[in-house]
Design a protein around this nucleic acid. Structure first.
Lengths: 258, 258
DNA sequence: TCAAAAGTGTTGATCCTACACCCATGA
DNA sequence: TCATGGGTGTAGGATCAACACTTTTGA
């Protein structure tokens, strides 16, 4: 894809690349951030946990492949999975990241509401939601932190990058609602922030901030109410049309560091 | 790269993918944002302008390939090019983005100071700095805007994505300094913001904001001074160690929109 | 002496934080 | 009636935009 390609370039002359997608699928349950992992049934890394993923089909874009894998691994229909938040993270291409052959992987991050236990559509028999350490993720833009766990391939690194990214994106986008069910209370939305960031937020201020941002959430008309346990029932909201937060909702530590 | 790979997977059984890197190299000169383009010498899109780029060598990561291409196209030594800002943008993998074969491209964004005219190291005989329309780029998170120009392949889209990304990143990172030479004045730094965003900023406030952010810039000791034309000579600074801006430096329009 | 760019000061508006306080519900 | 979570109010501090003003240079 360049002016520098030699005239008679033959794609078969090079060692072929395989292209895969890997998914970091996050959810919030029981005030913990969880990621969807699958247990590998074969070498290499047999028995190790890995991010779900798979090869691109011959006429599939990475986006399409990621959406397909997401549906497969969560056990949802493609129809339902089409509504889930999915975004490209970055591409990993170190030559030896897979010991067998040259594999370039396009990693995606998905945010889903608390779903029923994954029942794989065949392949993903050993899929599980794994809680992440509840410590706050490293502040954005710092690399080189140690891996969180010990996953197959370079999936520790991918997971750490994804974790860091969503923490940063909560600051200046509305995507926290992607973790919530169709209708949710402001308390539930606040829990998402507190869980992902690992901090406590002031409820009155959080409420004002969210409601003051046009398009972040919309009140649900018929005033049904609902409770998270006991206490006063809360008003219900659904996600609004906005995607960016202006001005951003900064992490409390954010304002005291470099 | 997944538990779903069949046991006897043969990479040669699939149509092979080619993997390339494409570079959106930006610079600021004469108060205009410029991008480095090359003229294609062969079909398809012969005679059209395209982003520089090329194939991954067999044992090269995308990052390494991008760094190598950056050095080649700018005519700098690899040594010098190693200091330039280079970051992954995203990966483009639509099946028909190249009419000849299946090509997956990892796009990178590079920010460079105002360099001498590119004298390609052989391949890039027809490289040129092209000014971008001086209108402000679309605010972050809005997609689906019309392409800026008419480049080969899907390079319009890549360029638009890169343009949008750097506009957004100036808000919450320190990377505006990547556009400046080793030593620069605050006036030059402000010009970078004004050029990329297409707005005018208040000089006193800009100055205070930059100096109040620890690690953004460092005063150069021996008080040499320098002028941008006429007027009072300005103090010189160099880039600091910080990479993130907390709190961010928001675009003026940013605070009045959704 | 004038234009142009650097740099300092000030003021009023706005935003944010940290609270205090009341409301509605289940046990 | 008490504990729990939802929701409103408010005062002080920090931040910021706007603009006036001084300084230093080249022409």
């Amino acid at each position: 894809m360049s002016a520098t390609r030699p005239e008679g370039y033959d794609p078969y002359a090079f060692e072929p690349f395989a292209v895969t997608v890997d998914l970091a699928v996050f959810t919030v349950r029981e005030s913990r951030l969880h990621v969807l992992l699958v247990e590998r049934g074969q070498e290499p890394y047999r028995g190790a946990w890995a991010l779900p993923g798979g090869f691109l089909l011959p006429r599939e874009s990475a986006e399409t492949a990621a959406r397909r894998e997401l549906a497969e691994e969560t056990g949802l229909t493609e129809q339902t999975a089409a509504d889930l938040h999915l975004e490209q993270l970055r591409t990993y291409s170190e030559p030896d990241r897979d010991p067998r052959m040259r594999v370039v992987s396009v990693a995606y991050t998905a945010l889903v509401p608390d779903l029923p236990e994954p029942r794989g559509g065949g392949d993903a028999a050993h899929a599980r939601w794994m809680p992440l350490p509840s410590a706050a993720p490293p502040p954005a833009f710092g690399r080189g932190d140690p891996p969180l766990a010990s996953l197959a391939f370079d999936h520790d690194r991918i997971l750490a990058d994804a974790h860091e990214r969503i923490g940063a994106k909560l600051e200046y986008t509305c995507l926290a609602t992607a973790f919530c069910p169709r209708q949710f209370t402001l308390g539930e939305l606040q829990q998402v922030y507190e869980t992902v960031w690992g901090v406590e937020l002031d409820r009155p201020n959080f409420r004002r901030k969210v409601l003051a941002t046009p398009g972040f959430v919309e009140a649900v008309e018929g005033e049904p109410r609902r409770t998270g346990g006991r206490g006063k029932p809360a008003a219900l909201y659904r996600a609004g049309a906005a995607s960016a937060l202006h001005p951003p909702l900064l992490r409390p530590e954010g304002r005291h560091q470099t």
